[in-house]
């Protein structure tokens, strides 16, 4: 194994108690993500991928197991230190979850206000980050005046404002059309390159993984059934689900092989 991975998930378990009884969503997940990875987690709906992601910033509390980011054991933090830690983990969402009552500027400044950063520094930081996502001209708009792609750019700017070490993406492109999806993924790759940010993204779209990720894991019924380099999983899927996923996307797998597999 060598050195410890940046993000380590060990034996993570989570059961939801619903009216219809107990539902075991995560059945002992082990996962390791290195610094600078764009790590994709894919699965059919209900596989537990969002729950897994939400355990990384403890929006969901696991029943057992540990999550460690850097040298902080997230699962052991008390409420105050958890909030401090969350300020250093950005998150973006499928439905963007912007604050309608706030302008673009004040959406992006929100995490900085929460972290208690002085006003003068907030201004420069917000302007800087809006430039990065190319939304400087929308600074005084309200979310209602923006397109889906622009909203997600605001979401990304907001998630990055406080200079996090990790960005969590919960189906962030699933509500967008294909073209916008690619421009958002391009932005994420760009940020990953420029800032060396570790990105963990959850999706049900294989294209997203193919386009943006360096490593991937396939999750089914609360278990990780396959993980590794995107290329090796794609070219040599071992599990039924992975094969199924790739069969569904047979057409583009072909161009994946042509594009990436030139040397094979």
């Amino acid at each position: 194994m060598g050195s410890e991975p940046f993000i380590a998930v060990r034996k993570l378990k989570k059961t939801f108690h619903t009216h219809e009884g107990a539902l075991e969503v995560l059945k002992g997940i082990d996962l390791e993500i290195d610094r600078g990875d764009i790590y994709g987690i894919i699965g059919f709906s209900g596989a537990g991928k969002s729950t897994l992601l939400r355990c990384l910033n403890r929006l969901e509390s696991p029943d057992s197991g540990t999550v460690t980011i850097g040298d902080v054991e997230i699962t052991a933090l008390d409420k105050t230190s958890l909030n401090g830690h969350r300020q250093k983990v950005g998150m973006i969402f499928q439905q963007f979850n912007l604050f309608d009552s706030r302008t673009v500027y004040r959406n992006v400044s929100f995490p900085l206000e929460v972290a208690g950063i002085p006003k003068a520094r907030i201004r420069t930081r917000v302007e800087e980050i809006l430039e990065l996502v190319e939304l400087t001209d929308k600074i005084n708009c309200h979310p209602g005046q923006l397109s889906g792609g622009q909203k997600q750019r605001v979401g990304i700017a907001r998630a990055l404002a406080n200079q996090p070490d990790v960005l969590l993406s919960d189906e962030a492109t699933s509500a967008l059309d294909p073209q916008t999806t690619f421009s958002i993924l391009e932005l994420l790759k760009d940020i990953n390159r420029k800032l060396g940010l570790t990105i963990v993204l959850v999706t049900h779209e294989l294209e997203v993984i193919k386009y943006a990720c360096t490593k991937m894991a396939v999750i089914q019924d609360g278990v990780i059934i396959e993980k590794g380099d995107v290329r090796s999983v794609f070219l040599n899927p071992k599990s039924e689900t992975s094969k199924q996923f790739i069969k569904i996307n047979d057409e583009f797998l072909k161009d994946f092989v042509v594009e990436e597999g030139g040397g094979i």
């Binding site: 910033n57 909030n83 300020q87 983990v89 929100f110 995490p111 206000e113």
Partner: peptide, 25 residues
């Protein structure tokens, strides 16, 4: 609820969620 979740993910305290999210929204 998505907005509240986003605020929570950014490390807001309950007080901050009430004053900065619930009431203004």
């Amino acid at each position: 609820p998505g907005c509240i979740q986003a605020a929570r993910a950014m490390g807001s305290s309950n007080r901050q969620i009430i004053l900065k999210v619930l009431i203004p929204e």
